[in-house]
Design a protein around this nucleic acid. Sequence first.
DNA 1: TATTGTTATACTCTATAACTATA
DNA 2: TATAGTTATAGAGTATAACAATA
Lengths: 163, 163
Amino acid sequence: MATRASVKSPRVVTPPPAPVGEIDTRYLETLIGYNARRAALSVIGLFMTRMARYELRIVDFSVLSLITHNPGITSAQLCSALSILPPNLVGIINALARRGLIGRQPHPRDGRAMGLHLTDAGHALMVEAEQTASDLEIEATGRLSAAERQTLIRLLRKVYLPP
Amino acid sequence: MATRASVKSPRVVTPPPAPVGEIDTRYLETLIGYNARRAALSVIGLFMTRMARYELRIVDFSVLSLITHNPGITSAQLCSALSILPPNLVGIINALARRGLIGRQPHPRDGRAMGLHLTDAGHALMVEAEQTASDLEIEATGRLSAAERQTLIRLLRKVYLPP
DNA sequence: TATTGTTATACTCTATAACTATA
DNA sequence: TATAGTTATAGAGTATAACAATA
């Protein structure tokens, strides 16, 4: 994932391909974890490229998307839903607030918590970003038919959802 | 992934569950990347738990597995096949060699390169580790039928393999 | 000139401990 | 006492630059 390289440095320094075709990877390819990780990295790679336009990392997009569809959500709920540890969310939230994309409002029932909401600017950004995300998903899975795509999501959910 | 916590510290410090059921995550669940990443993390979590017995991380297992099925493979080939940068592979290889699991032999055709091979101890370990990996894959995808499992791998490969 | 393997190093991500304010 | 949010910090993972030896 050459994130910084593509942003900061226009020069390509990373070594090129190298011979791979002769390597036998058949055993690893029998493992769901190996295939799921490679597929995730492939889609996520395109995701990062497209979202760089909005200066959003995946975690930023995920946080903003949950705030979009859950106005007033708290940091603790975000942490739980996205498996982020509370100390690591603080900087993410602060950065999004500093950019004027979200605002904090006192929680109506819990004086300790702050409800998170999109600003108008945040809403405008997310309308575009979510459309971009949906588009790139189709692009990243271009070799799959609509039915296959639906099957893939169904099977992936059966893997990670609790019984 | 509470790796170190479960190994070094018997005390549980990480905050507990928290309310999640009421959060609307339906949009994120339409994204292949989101689902593939969660599935990968789910399988990889069990993988780490089972492989801790052999003191192997995923990257260690992947490297050893490729050496197992490609005796004499070079570091550059491992880097290419597993998307590891050369400087980051050095420590991995050194650690496996220090544990007596692999050995380096001069490459027959290229004086710069070293061919990597399993030692007898490394071979014995990998017979067990690969069996453990295959078993836990079935366990981690326990809700999938054999046919579904095969379909899932086929669709994942269509996502990440080049056209 | 290009590639292999390596050292040094920096940045990002993730994890733990400890604190405060509130429940 | 337990939880929400925060600060400080440590560790793992991943990235770039630069070098010696060999092709």
